[in-house]
Structures are given as structure tokens and as C-alpha cells.
Amino acid sequence: MFKKIVATAALLFAAASFAAVDVNKGSEADLDGLKGVGPALSKRILDARKQGEFKDWADLMQRVKGVKEKAAAKLSAEGLTVNGKAYAGGDAPAAAPRTGKPAKVAAKE
């Protein structure tokens, strides 16, 4: 019986440690608890959140310095969500349109 109690407690602890933290609802301590989020990043997130909740990952990446596609993917893998959604990879802010033509390279003479 004791082994079952210990095993159940261990499973509950493991599940709690992998619990998702929503960027719009998490406290500073919740955000700091995620691997990859330190005091400076959690402060930037909370400061940006004062302007209004984040709509999606693109909004988060646009408003919080230091959070771009690579960081968003890592933070999402650690349990950070925006409105309950994990980073899907294609949520990046709109960039300048590409023409599909290669850039011209100056020839050396």
C-alpha cells in the first residue's frame, strides 16, 4: 500500500512539473518556473501584458523582445501557451514579401 501511495505522489509531482503556463494568466513565479524564462524575460512579458492580453504567438513575439520563432518553439516545448495554444511554428509576425528572385551579387573585376 505504501508503494502505491509513493508512486501516486511521484506521478502527481511529475504531472504538476509539466503543467502548461498560459502567458496571459501566469504569475511571475509561474513564468520563472519554466526552463528558458528568467527574471528579465518574465518581467518583459508581464510589462507587455499590462498593455493587454496577448492574442496569439505572433502578438507575443512582436511585443516581447527576445521571443522570436526559435525561442517561441523552445518555450512552447517547456509548457508555455498563449490562450491555451502551443506554438505551431507558422505564427510568426508577417515579414516583408519575398519576390522569389535571388539577390544580385556585385561581381569583382
Rank of each mutant, 00 (worst) to 15 (best):
A58K: 12
T99G: 15
V23C: 11
V37L: 13
F2I: 07
G66F: 07
D59C: 07
G52C: 09
A86Y: 03
E28H: 12
A88N: 05
A103R: 09
A10P: 00
A48Y: 03
L41K: 11
G100I: 05
T81F: 12
K101L: 14
A9L: 13
F18L: 13
L46V: 06
R63A: 03
G38P: 08
G66K: 01
A16Y: 15
K101V: 08
V67A: 03
A107N: 06
A106C: 06
A106W: 10
Q51C: 01
K4Y: 06
D56N: 15
Y87C: 05
W57T: 02
P93A: 08
N83A: 15
A40F: 05
D22Q: 09
L41T: 02
D56M: 13
I45Q: 05
R49D: 10
D91I: 08
L31C: 06
A9C: 04
A14K: 11
S27E: 11
S76V: 10
D59Y: 08
P97C: 00
K43T: 11
G90D: 15
A107H: 00
G66D: 12
V6P: 01
G33F: 02
A29S: 09
K3V: 04
G36L: 07
E109V: 12
I5D: 02
A73G: 13
I45S: 01
V21C: 11
Q51P: 00
A107T: 13
K104Q: 11
A86F: 10
V6Y: 11
G38M: 04
K104W: 07
K101Q: 14
G89K: 06
R63W: 09
I45H: 03
S76R: 10
T99E: 02
V23I: 14
A88M: 12
L41H: 00
D59P: 03
P93C: 06
M61I: 07
A15I: 14
G52P: 03
K35V: 10
D59Q: 07
S27Q: 10
Q51Y: 01
A15D: 12
I45C: 03
M1D: 00
A88T: 12
G89M: 09
P97S: 11
K3G: 01
E53T: 10
K43A: 15
S76D: 07
Y87M: 04
S27V: 10
M61F: 04
N83K: 15
G36K: 09
G100S: 11
V64G: 02
D30I: 12
F2K: 08
A58P: 06
D32A: 12
K68E: 14
V105N: 00
K74L: 07
E109S: 02
L11P: 00
L46F: 05
L60A: 02
D32F: 01
K101E: 13
R98Q: 12
E78R: 08
N24A: 11
F13K: 08
P39Q: 04
R44E: 06
L34C: 06
A73F: 03
F13S: 02
K70R: 14
V105P: 01
D47C: 04
A103P: 01
K3F: 10
L11I: 07
A86E: 15
K85A: 14
P102C: 00
K3Y: 05
A94W: 04
S17Q: 14
L41I: 01
V82Y: 05
W57Q: 01
V105S: 03
A40N: 05
L31K: 08
K68N: 09
A14L: 13
A77D: 13
M61D: 03
F54V: 04
I5C: 01
S42D: 07
